[in-house]
Amino acid sequence: MESTSSHNIVRCKSGNTLIAETQMLISEEPLSIRVENTPYAVVMRTPGDERFLAAGFCLAEGLVDRVEDFAAIGYCEQMDPNVIAVTLTPQRREKVSDLLARRGYISQTSCGICGKELVKDLIQNMVPSTDTTRIDLAALLERINDDRMQDYQDLYRKTNSAHGAVLFSRDLAVMGLGEDVGRHNALDKAIGQALLENRLPQTVAAVLSSRVSYELVQKCARAGIGTIVSMSRPTALAVDLGGRMNMTLACISKEGDLLIFSGRERLVESG
Rank of each mutant, 00 (worst) to 15 (best):
L187K: 06
S14F: 09
G15T: 10
A55R: 07
L177Y: 05
I84F: 02
D240I: 06
V174D: 00
Y75F: 15
A71V: 00
A205W: 01
D80L: 06
L137V: 07
N145W: 06
I225E: 09
L118A: 09
L167N: 04
S3F: 10
R11Q: 10
I9P: 04
L172D: 00
H7Y: 12
T132M: 09
N198C: 11
T133F: 06
T89M: 06
D98S: 12
R148A: 15
T17Y: 07
E28W: 06
D147V: 13
A205R: 01
Q218S: 14
M247G: 02
R211F: 11
T132H: 06
S253D: 14
R102A: 12
E117Q: 09
I19P: 00
T46S: 14
Y152T: 04
S107A: 09
L216F: 09
E142L: 11
D136H: 07
I225T: 13
G62Y: 14
S129F: 02
V229D: 05
E117V: 08
L122T: 06
R264T: 10
Y214P: 00
P128K: 00
D154Q: 11
V207D: 00
R93A: 15
S32Y: 10
G271F: 13
N8I: 09
I252W: 03
H7T: 10
R143I: 01
S107K: 02
V166M: 04
R264P: 04
P39T: 07
T227N: 02
V10E: 08
R51K: 14
N8E: 07
D49M: 08
Q153L: 14
M247E: 01
I9S: 05
V127Y: 03
S129R: 02
A162H: 05
I144D: 00
L25Q: 15
R199I: 04
L249D: 01
D136A: 11
E94P: 00
Q78G: 09
I135A: 01
V181K: 06
P47V: 10
Y152G: 03
A54R: 10
G15Y: 03
S32N: 14
K95H: 09
E36W: 03
P81M: 07
R143E: 08
C114Y: 11
M44G: 08
Y156H: 15
T159M: 04
N82R: 12
L53K: 01
Y105Q: 11
N16T: 13
Q150G: 07
A223D: 11
K13I: 05
M175L: 09
L241W: 07
C111T: 15
Y152H: 10
R51E: 13
A72D: 14
S169M: 03
V181D: 00
Y152P: 03
D121C: 00
T130S: 03
A205G: 02
I113N: 12
F261H: 11
V229W: 00
R266S: 03
A162M: 04
K219L: 14
I135H: 02
L25V: 15
R34C: 06
F261R: 04
N198M: 13
Y214Q: 12
E28R: 15
L177S: 08
P39H: 08
F168N: 02
Y40G: 01
V174W: 00
A205L: 15
Q91L: 11
T87N: 08
V64I: 15
R148V: 10
E265V: 08
T87E: 14
T22F: 01
V67W: 02
S5T: 11
E68Q: 14
G112R: 08
G243V: 04
C12V: 13
Y156S: 09
R66E: 15
N125W: 07
A85H: 08
Q202G: 05
